[in-house]
Lab assay of single mutants.
Amino acid sequence: QNEKLANELKSLLDELNVNELATGSLNTYYKRTIKISGQKAMYALKSKDFKKMSEAKYQLQKIYNEIDEA
């Protein structure tokens, strides 16, 4: 289960640069939040902690959705 979550989180991290570029014309909230979420996700992957990875995955998905809707 950890392996599956780690792969999903890696996949979301692969999209980080594209989504970060998409924040160029948006409010600074999005820029700041996506950077923080990305850092948390990288830390969670290194720690291999299921709870941290779950939270990081949720945060990344949430900010990606917010950027898409903005």
Rank of each mutant, 00 (worst) to 15 (best):
S54F: 09
L45A: 02
A22H: 09
Q1F: 09
E15I: 12
S54Y: 11
E3V: 07
L16N: 00
K52Q: 10
L45F: 06
G38E: 06
Y30W: 09
E55Q: 08
Q39F: 09
N27I: 05
Q1V: 11
Y30S: 03
N19Q: 13
E15Q: 14
E55M: 07
M53P: 01
I63C: 02
D14S: 08
G24N: 13
E15V: 12
K40Q: 09
N17Y: 14
L26R: 03
D49C: 04
A41C: 02
L21H: 08
S11A: 13
Y58F: 11
Y58V: 10
L13F: 03
I67F: 03
A41M: 01
N65G: 08
N19Y: 15
L13Y: 03
T28N: 13
D49Y: 02
K52M: 12
S25Y: 10
A56K: 01
S11V: 11
L16K: 02
E69V: 12
K57W: 07
E55G: 03
G38N: 05
K62L: 09
E15G: 07
K35Y: 12
L9M: 01
A44N: 00
D14K: 12
L12N: 00
D68Y: 15
A70P: 03
M42E: 07
V18P: 05
A70M: 10
K35I: 10
K48M: 14
D68G: 12
Y64R: 08
Y30L: 10
E66W: 10
A44Y: 02
R32C: 14
E55F: 07
T33C: 15
D68C: 15
Y29Q: 03
N27P: 14
K52H: 05
K52T: 07
Q61H: 05
Q59E: 13
K48T: 04
L12Y: 02
A6S: 06
T23C: 09
K10S: 07
K62I: 06
S11W: 11
A6I: 10
Y43K: 12
G38L: 15
K51H: 09
A44Q: 01
E55W: 11
S11P: 00
Q61A: 06
G38V: 15
R32V: 13
K52R: 13
S54T: 13
N2H: 11
K31P: 03
L12G: 00
M53F: 02
D14P: 00
G38F: 14
T28M: 12
S47N: 06
L60E: 01
Y29L: 04
N19P: 04
E55R: 08
L5C: 15
Q1L: 13
R32D: 08
D49A: 02
E55H: 06
A41Y: 02
K46P: 01
K52E: 13
K40A: 08
I36F: 06
R32L: 11
L13M: 05
T33I: 14
M42S: 04
S54H: 08
E69S: 11
K46S: 07
S47Q: 06
N19C: 15
Y43W: 12
E8R: 03
N7I: 10
Q1A: 12
I63A: 03
D49S: 07
N19S: 06
N27S: 14
K51R: 09
K52C: 10
K40C: 10
Q61F: 04
A44H: 01
K46Y: 08
A6Q: 09
I63N: 01
L13D: 00
D68P: 04
I67Q: 02
E15P: 02
A41T: 01
Q59I: 09
L13N: 01
E8A: 06
V18S: 11
T28D: 15
S25C: 14
Y30H: 04
A22D: 04
E8K: 04
L16E: 00
D14F: 08
A6R: 09
E20M: 15
Q39R: 13
A70L: 09
Y29V: 04
E20H: 09
S54P: 02
N65M: 13
A56W: 03
N27Y: 05
S11G: 07
D49E: 04
K10Y: 04
L13V: 05
K4S: 08
S11D: 09
L9Y: 01
N65H: 13
A41V: 03
E8Y: 05
K46C: 09
E3A: 08
T23H: 07
K52S: 08
K10M: 09
F50P: 11
Y29C: 12
E69M: 13
N2E: 10
A41W: 03
S54G: 05
D68K: 15
A6W: 15
Q61C: 08
L16T: 02
K4G: 05
E20N: 09
D49T: 02
A56E: 01
E55K: 07
T23S: 09
E69A: 14
Y58Q: 11
N27L: 06
S37D: 03
K4N: 07
Y43L: 14
Y58G: 06
E69N: 10
L45G: 01
S11H: 11
D14G: 08
E69K: 13
S54E: 13
V18Y: 14
E15R: 14
T23G: 06
E3C: 10
A22V: 09
K31E: 05
L12E: 01
I67M: 05
K62W: 06
E15A: 12
G24C: 14
I36Y: 08
D68L: 15
E20G: 06
S54D: 05
L13K: 00
Y64K: 11
K35D: 05
N65R: 15
L60C: 01
T33Y: 11
S47G: 04
E20I: 15
E8G: 03
Y64I: 13
K31S: 08
N2Y: 14
V18G: 08
M42N: 06
Y64C: 04
D49K: 03
L16G: 01
A41S: 02
K57S: 04
L5H: 01
G24P: 04
M42Q: 09
L9H: 00
S37T: 13
A22T: 05
N65I: 08
K4T: 09
Q59C: 14
E66Y: 06
K51T: 10
N19M: 15
L26D: 04
T33N: 08
L45E: 02
Q59V: 07
I36S: 06
S25D: 10
M53N: 02
S54Q: 13
L21D: 06
A56D: 00
A44W: 02
A44P: 01
K57T: 04
T23Q: 06
L21V: 10
S47M: 10
N27G: 13
R32P: 02
K40N: 10
A44K: 01
A44E: 02
E55C: 10
L12P: 00
I36Q: 08
M42P: 00
N17P: 13
K31N: 05
S25G: 09
K31Y: 09
Y30N: 03
T33M: 15
F50W: 08
A6F: 14
I63G: 01
T33V: 13
K4C: 07
E8W: 04
A41L: 02
Q39N: 06
Y58A: 13
F50R: 05
A70S: 06
Y64P: 00
S54C: 12
K40I: 11
S47W: 05
A22R: 15
K51N: 10
K35H: 07
L13G: 00
Y29D: 04
K10Q: 12
E3I: 09
K48F: 07
L26S: 03
S25E: 09
L21A: 10
K46M: 13
A56H: 01
K40V: 07
R32M: 12
S54V: 13
F50H: 06
K51V: 09
Q61T: 08
L26H: 04
K51E: 11
G24D: 12
L45W: 07
